[in-house]
């Protein structure tokens, strides 16, 4: 037997790591620190930043527009995650019980591959008040044109619906992949015992899918909080500020009004929320791993 000497690959290792460490330091570490610093300054891109203590945070907590953006974001997240998760669970179950077709799965993945900007444009056209296909359909059954993007009550459900359309297939495929891990004999056994599809879903699929479902839910939540592209293309935060989500609020503060310090404070706030969600995700990731191993 050959015993290998304790190796020390120090020199090689740092060379292997060099590009990633440079990328990390320059574009993650440094900007993260700088972001925290801006949040306690009055920086506006033209001045030299001066320390103002917690002023930005105090202003933020008193800013109605900020609270509106939090409220609007929460509304979006509820609409989007609720519909998307339920639909995805349904579609995944259908696929799991019906077919293993790769063709079908690829088709479901299609909207996920398309840029949100394209999806926004596409639905702006489909939902156009005068010429859009959907309003033509509504007209055909005697319903009046709906201003999907221009009506204050409709705007947010419309945006949420568009993103549900775009991400449900992807989410369904993740859940489906989780379902494939469930041993087939459980279903065969239940079927011999005379259990129907609904009982198998409640008794086998749902409980065994739970770790995967929880993980997918958190990942979708994190993504949902960061909705921007669709809104930037379709409603631009309007009508009034019915769709001015937190990401758009930060974007406006930073790049329209150049209140960089203020925007950074709002970003810290959002980062805290997402940080907690990510920490939960990491926990679940470990949990689901040990479950399936």
């Amino acid at each position: 037997m050959i015993t290998t000497k304790p190796r020390d690959d120090r020199r090689a290792a740092w060379l292997f790591l060099l590009p990633v460490l440079v990328g990390f330091a320059v574009f993650y570490g440094y900007p993260a620190a700088r972001g925290v610093w801006y949040s306690v300054t009055d920086y506006n891109m033209l001045n030299t930043a001066t320390y103002v203590g917690a002023e930005n945070y105090a202003k933020l907590l008193a800013d109605e527009a900020f609270w509106n953006s939090m409220k609007v974001t929460a509304w979006y997240v509820v609409l989007n995650i609720g519909s998307q998760t339920l639909l995805a669970l349904g579609i995944a179950t259908l696929m799991h019980r019906l077919t293993r077709s790769v063709m079908l799965r690829a088709t479901l993945l299609l909207p996920w591959l398309v840029p949100n900007v394209t999806i926004g444009l596409l639905w702006m056209w489909l939902l156009d008040t005068n010429l859009g296909f959907v309003n033509q359909l509504l007209h055909a059954v005697g319903l009046g044109p709906v201003g999907f993007f221009t009506d204050e009550t409709w705007a947010m459900p419309t945006v949420a619906g568009i993103n549900t359309w775009a991400y449900t297939g992807y989410t369904a495929l993740l859940l489906y992949a989780g379902m494939l891990q469930i041993p087939q004999y459980l279903y065969e056994g239940a079927s011999i015992d005379g259990a129907g599809e609904w009982r198998m879903f409640r008794g086998i699929t749902l409980p065994l899918l739970r770790p995967v479902l929880a993980l997918v839910l958190v990942v979708s939540l994190i993504g949902s909080f960061q909705i921007f592209d669709t809104i930037a293309v379709t409603t631009k935060g309007g009508p009034v500020s019915a769709t001015q989500v937190i990401y758009y609020f930060i974007y406006l503060q930073a790049f329209k009004y150049f209140h960089l310090g203020y925007a950074a404070a709002a970003a810290v706030f959002l980062a805290l929320i997402l940080g907690v969600l990510t920490a939960i995700q990491m926990r679940l990731l470990r949990a689901s791993r040990s479950d399936l191993a």
């Binding site: 990390f24 993650y28 440094y30 972001g35 930060i250 930073a254 970003a267 980062a271 940080g275």
Partner: peptide
């Protein structure tokens, strides 16, 4: 561990400073 911790930093947070950089 430090590199992986960057997973918790949302893109918007580094976006503003990266823009200035």
């Amino acid at each position: 561990a430090i590199v992986i911790a960057a997973l918790m930093v949302p893109p918007i947070f580094t976006l503003l400073p990266n823009f200035i950089l």
